[in-house]
């Protein structure tokens, strides 16, 4: 009962009492936060090590001149690798291919995926079965998908398309040689449409039915309902699809390797990186610089894509 603690002295006014409580509360909150974070720390460290460390290494290599064949000592050369890229016609071609390939594959698969999702978003017999069938392309390994399309579909000798064209009397077309970029884009769209479809379908099924009914009662046609109600509702789902699609598709490698094996019209930056490094170039400095460019471009592109999309869907007039 002896009054040893001055901060709880009974003569302390209400103001100091409040301050003490606030201080005490802040202290408790800090402790609370650390207690909650602590168990996450190992996972966080692990994640940083395995994701960020390689990136830091790449960053370092990109600032060096490092060729393995013929073996030369690694020397620090600053940003020369990057400035060289600007003048490199092959790199510029690859960059352009990357842009066209990613943008068109994302856009087309998004449109197709939305269309199919709209068809699937109603009750019919065998719905689950059809949905599973439609998802399979996404489950096929990229290499296998590339091979199947190259040999069974596009091929001038064994391909289905040419067989059909022959039936109606049109001569063989060597698709992969004539349209290397678009052949790859078609395969990518085939693989990615199911992914987009799943995301959009989730969005459609999360749409409250009474809002759609309200629109019907308000005299909206199906078309008006889609463009004025459903599409704005799907905005976050379309954004997600664009984001994930762009991030993955900008790194496509397998399909290019299998279908065209590269070439100025169909190698994107990752493929070019491969060619310049372990694919025969052995110039790891330059290749690292290019990968850094891809990472930055991915971020920029994804952001741009989201902006454009948001802008398109924001168009709502006030009355």
């Amino acid at each position: 009962m002896t009054d040893t603690q001055p901060d709880t002295a009974p003569d302390a006014g209400p103001d100091t009492r409040d301050e003490e409580r606030a201080e005490e509360r802040r202290h408790l909150e800090r402790r609370e936060k650390w207690i909650r974070r602590l168990p996450l720390l190992p996972a966080l460290l692990f994640t940083i090590v395995i994701t960020q460390v390689p990136f830091v290494f790449s960053l370092f290599y990109s600032l060096t001149d490092w060729k393995i064949i013929p073996p030369t000592p690694r020397t620090f050369i600053g940003f020369d690798n990057f400035t060289d890229l600007v003048d490199n016609q092959f790199f510029r071609d690859a960059a352009w291919v990357s842009v066209v390939m990613t943008a068109s594959a994302v856009l087309l698969s998004l449109i197709l995926g939305t269309g199919i999702a709209l068809l699937l978003d109603r009750k019919f017999f065998g719905q689950g079965f059809v949905r599973t069938l439609l998802i399979t392309p996404f489950l096929v390994m990229p290499v296998v998908a590339g091979l199947v399309w190259k040999n069974q579909v596009f091929s001038s000798q064994y391909g289905v398309i040419n067989w059909l064209l022959n039936l109606v009397g049109i001569d063989n077309v060597e698709f992969v040689t004539r349209y290397p970029l678009w052949s790859i884009v078609i395969v990518l769209v085939w693989e990615w449409t199911p992914f987009m479809m799943l995301i959009i379908l989730a969005g459609l099924q999360g749409q409250p039915t009474d809002v759609l009914e309200a629109a019907r009662v308000d005299g909206a046609t199906n078309r008006a309902i889609f463009f004025q109600i459903t599409l704005p509702h799907l905005k976050p789902y379309l954004e997600l699809g664009t984001l994930l699609g762009s991030i993955y598709l900008i790194q496509v490698f397998d399909q290019i390797e299998v279908i065209t094996g590269g070439g100025p019209d169909s190698s994107n930056i990752p493929f070019f990186v491969f060619q310049r490094s372990i694919g025969g170039g052995w110039d790891f400095g330059a290749a690292s610089a290019m990968s850094i460019v891809v990472v930055i471009a991915s971020i920029v592109l994804a952001n741009l894509g989201l902006r454009v999309l948001s802008g398109l869907l924001e168009g709502e007039d006030p009355a």
Binding site: P208, V211, E213, A214, Q228
Partner: peptide, 13 residues
């Protein structure tokens, strides 16, 4: 014209 129990307002508008 219909008024719904949960109002069914168009959320994005």
């Amino acid at each position: 014209a219909m008024v719904f129990q949960n109002y069914a307002l168009y959320p994005q508008m």
